[in-house]
Design a protein around this nucleic acid. Structure first.
Length: 415
RNA sequence: GCGAUCAUAGCUCAGUUGGUUAGAGCGCCGGUUUGUGGUACCGGAGGUCGCGGGUUCGAGCCCCGUUGAUCGCCCCA
């Protein structure tokens, strides 16, 4: 060890937009995942694992022509063989690729769920990171509106069981089938062209690239124009109308509250019919907690057979931030304060016995013996055991939760 | 890619119109209580004030640059 400060080794900085978690937030994170794993079983969704890395084509092809996303917001690199690899920015495309690769058509309709890290090369802000984590649920190979409805009921129950449903609203829209969508899009472009002079600069650019996006613009100049734009309803084919009606009927039957948001859109062309977001105003600019929709065109885009599918994803960090403060009890059962090092072996024996009986137990046996009781008292635990010597005799004292005090005494006196 | 705000001890922050040896709380380490006791008292360690230039007799404070963070815009699969 050198004390020469000039020889100090510089500490590498974490990659921008990544995070380290310890304690409270890590516990919340795990709680979200555990709850998801429990609830997805209730709905019969199979656990699925797909790679974190995929050939870039998996995402580039699924995302189509949306240049910004592909060119600027993916983590891509060349491997040693010269192949372009991308860190997955979403689950859906990888799962769709796996569905084709493994011939999972034989299992259709296939209900799957997964969770894990995703990567997007974006500017970090509240609830938005470069490495982030999502829960994901998909139904592949079903064209039934019941699949959409079930997925939404699943999502609704998950949010309720997490205790975050308060202040979170399910907003729902339909993008219709291909024919409905094309007709609506044409009408929107015509509407916006007529008001071109009043649109914001951003929306003028959207008019070329992605006119549907003008509908959810945040710019106050765009709002009156967006609000007066035609809804898709007048352009829906009978089939599309029936489909949406069946989804909402399914939600009503299951008692799931929802709101129509005729301004909710998706940028990518493979989206059909149902589009939805669970939104909150508690997360700053990143208000979407869980979102998804039907993507009947995606698997075909990847070279697979025409396959209807629907799914959603939810940000684990965002859900973790919404959890109530006192939701998770991370207290130990016991904490032992060893106040006399002469009793160390006895204390270790007691520690092992308590742990073997299934009690979460920690020991404080370092530092000034006189301070160990105070130190132990600061560790969150339901009962405190002090072990020491009094009048030359060993003594053990347990205080705290009544039941634990009794079972703890029994275990220790049996030693 | 754009904008705003910020950067002082391990953590959370003070630091007055630029003026001697840069402070507090928490945490850490040690001591005190001859105690059945839980946030007490005393002491200690720990800081090139993000980094690099500049202005000045003198800069934590002012100016420029740079790096990073936060929040927002764009984008949002």
């Amino acid at each position: 060890m050198s004390k020469d400060k000039s020889a100090k080794i510089p500490t590498p900085q974490p990659v921008r937009g990544t995070q380290d978690m310890l304690g409270d937030f890590a516990d919340r994170f795990a709680y979200v995942v555990e709850t998801f794993e429990r609830v997805r079983r209730l709905y019969g969704y199979k656990r699925i694992e797909v790679p974190v890395i995929e050939p870039t084509a998996v995402f580039a092809r699924s995302l189509g022509e949306t240049t910004d996303v592909v060119s600027k917001e993916m983590y891509s690199f060349e491997d040693r063989g010269g192949e372009s690899i991308t860190l997955r920015p979403e689950f859906t495309a990888g799962i769709a690729r796996a569905y084709i690769s493994n011939g999972w058509q034989q299992f259709a309709p296939l209900k799957v769920a997964t969770h894990g890290p995703l990567f997007r090369y974006e500017r970090p802000q509240k609830g938005r990171y470069r490495q982030f984590h999502q829960l994901d649920a998909e139904v592949l190979g079903s064209d039934s509106p019941l699949a959409d409805a079930e997925l939404l009921v699943f999502a609704d129950q998950l949010l309720k069981e997490l205790g975050v449903a308060e202040g979170v609203t399910l907003t729902l829209n339909t993008l219709g089938d291909a024919a409905s969508r094309d007709a609506w899009r044409a009408a929107l472009v015509e509407h916006f062209m007529g008001r071109k002079a009043d649109l914001s600069e951003d929306s003028l650019a959207r008019l070329d690239k992605n006119p549907l996006r003008i509908l959810d613009s945040k710019d106050p100049r765009d709002r009156p124009i967006a609000d007066s734009a035609p809804d898709i309803d007048a352009f829906l084919t009978n089939e599309a109308q029936d489909f949406f009606g069946a989804v909402t009927a399914g939600l009503d039957a299951a008692g799931v509250a929802w709101e129509r948001n005729a301004r909710l859109v998706r940028g990518l062309d493979y989206y059909r019919h149902t589009a939805f977001e669970f939104v909150t105003d508690r997360l700053g600019a990143q208000g979407t907690v869980l979102g998804g929709g039907r993507y009947d065109g995606l698997i075909e885009n990847l070279g697979g057979p025409p396959t209807p599918a629907v799914g959603w994803a939810a940000g684990i960090e965002r859900l973790a931030m919404l959890l109530a403060d006192d939701l998770i009890d991370t207290r130990l059962d016991f904490v032992i304060a060893l106040e006399d090092d002469g009793r160390l072996m006895f204390a270790m024996n007691a520690l092992a016995a308590l742990r073997n009986k299934g009690f979460a137990t920690e020991i404080v046996a370092t530092g000034s013996p006189r301070k160990r009781f105070d130190k132990a008292g600061k560790i969150p635990a339901r009962a405190l055991i002090s072990i020491g010597t009094r009048d030359g005799e060993p003594y053990v004292n347990i205080r705290g939760d009544d039941e634990l005090t009794i079972s703890g005494s029994a275990i220790i006196s049996a030693l």
